[in-house]
């Protein structure tokens, strides 16, 4: 799931300064689950923003901002507003902006990573969408997202007591990879030199799933 957190309120106020009416748009997808941009957060952001001046705010939360059919629900709502604050991830913000090219659309959140729920309110980064998943030989631990240097033949010399050199509270991914492969009897997986990545996420990503090519052309 995409994980995001709310921007500082001052930054958001800066975006909408001078606007007389603002529509706050929530996303009931990932950012609702990670407690950053669902209906509940739309309501509380409006309360926080209202403190400041005589601006008209309204809120609306759709299932997902990354699906045009849902974004279209705004069509009849948007007139009369001078700005939109989107509480989705960056993909959602862009879809709303694309639907209403004449409308200033601002992000209310910082999209931080693709991660998992540790507990309610606690999330951990797990994937950087490298486009060439390496997890097969790393015991299911991502060297791209969880190693501070994203190296493929780790651990670097910086690990200490199983922690990463950047932070004594953060585990060294490569120490974990080593331990897990050892427990599974699969250390041979990291005995050979892993060749340089052929980066596949360096151009604008588009994807058509197998079997859907013909629909794409319509």
């Amino acid at each position: 799931m995409v994980i995001a957190r709310i921007k500082p309120i001052e930054e958001i106020l800066g975006f909408i300064s001078g606007k007389k009416s603002v529509l706050v748009v929530g996303c009931a997808g990932c950012t609702a689950v990670c407690l950053a941009g669902g209906q509940r957060e739309v309501d509380s952001l409006i309360v926080d923003l209202k403190d400041n001046k005589g601006v008209i705010f309204d809120g609306y939360t759709m299932e997902r901002q990354c699906e045009m059919e849902f974004v279209a629900e705004l069509d009849h709502l948007i007139d009369g507003f001078q700005a939109v604050l989107s509480m989705a991830c960056g993909a959602g913000v862009q879809f709303v902006a694309e639907r209403f090219p004449g409308m200033p659309v601002f992000p209310a959140l910082d999209t931080v990573f693709v991660g998992a729920n540790r507990e309610v309110g606690q999330y951990q980064e797990n994937c950087r969408c490298c486009g060439d998943c390496q997890l097969a030989y790393t015991g299911g631990i991502c060297p791209v997202a969880l190693c501070a240097k994203g190296i493929y033949n780790g651990p670097c010399g910086g690990s200490r007591n199983g922690k990463c050199e950047v932070d004594e509270k953060t585990a060294c991914a490569w120490c974990q990879i080593y331990e897990r492969l050892k427990d599974q009897g699969r250390l041979d997986q990291i005995m050979n030199i892993k060749k340089p990545m052929k980066w596949k996420n360096q151009t604008q990503g588009t994807l058509v799933q197998r079997g859907y090519e013909k629909f794409q052309q319509d």
Binding site: A148, K149, Y152, C156, G158, I193
Partner: peptide, 22 residues
């Protein structure tokens, strides 16, 4: 190399396109 967060440019974007062995 030491991670960029240690130096005087802590907010730089680390490259690490390839690692030392590569």
């Amino acid at each position: 190399g030491d991670h960029q967060c240690f130096g005087n440019q802590p907010y730089s974007k680390g490259v690490y396109d390839i690692d030392s062995i590569q």
